[in-house]
Amino acid sequence: MTKRRAERFARRWLRGLLRRVPCGRDGIARVGAREIYILPTRTGFLFGTVLMVMLLGSLNYQNNLGLLFTFFLASVGVVAMHHAWFNLLGILVQVRGGPPVFAGETASYEVTLRNSRRHPRHDLRVGAEREFARPVSVPADDQLAVSFGLPARQRGLQRLEELRVETRHPMHLFRAWCHVATDAETLVFPHPARHAPAPEYAAGNPQRLHPSHKKGTEDYMGSRSYRRGDSPRHIDWKAFARERGLVVKEYGSERGREVWIDWSQLGVPDPEIRLGILTRQVLDASDAKVRFGLRLPGVVEGLAQGAAHTQRCLTRLALFEHAQDVNQPPRAT
């Protein structure tokens, strides 16, 4: 444990030493000359070793042709190093957080790489930590969007502190990389508990909130697109067969009921578990098409209904007593 802490500290200290590509006001980072790092790869070291042997042999046997070829290959290596560096230089990077996810899922980030040169840029990999997107090349005068995912471990705003852009162009002899400072965020909702007790109904008579089996007999109200957690029973399979995507039929009988999802109603001591249960309740209530409200210590989300309201409530749960800007509404994502 202490070892890991020391490691983390060392990494942070090192990160402080490293120069990062600053993000411009428009959210676009332009990779500058002094922010690019470059080191030989294993192949590069092998190449160097073979060249060294060739050099020594040719020098010893005074074989000028051997020297000529050795020097040519060495020059190609040196030029390749500059090309690797140059492949990153001046690239414009813009990072955006992906749609919100639940903790335990993968938060995606979308990176737009813009190449304003007349030559294509090859073998660009973007990522952070150990997760990298597939290498791409950006054609001349063009831009390309790549996305990669990071595991969403904790609820809250997951902020991508820095993005790494790497290249091993042209011959895999050198790896050039740079760290791009970003403020891309992805909202991570709490991990929903598997089961949750039914919350209290505003009318005072608790009722099971699980998707009712009587639903099928209720009046058909209309259709909407499929959302996580919808019962497969309500999927309009005919519409699916007509290739209109997953559509769920809605029934009106649940309307008119109201429910409060309340932090103080739960007896679980651990706040995170509580939040997980609340999340499940919000999802259930949303599925059940009831008007619901959310009460958290210091935060109240009034009675309402619909996707936007669910999102708002989940965001409240995600940011509840979160280290940064709790009361600020999240950015539109």
Binding site: L68, F71, F72, A74, S75, V76, V79, H83, H122, P170
Partner: peptide, 17 residues
């Protein structure tokens, strides 16, 4: 790409040689 590399490497090769 190779041609570009080789052409740029040539003067360097000559100097080294």
């Amino acid at each position: 790409v190779t041609t570009r590399l080789a052409l740029q490497a040539l003067p360097l090769t000559l100097v080294l040689f």
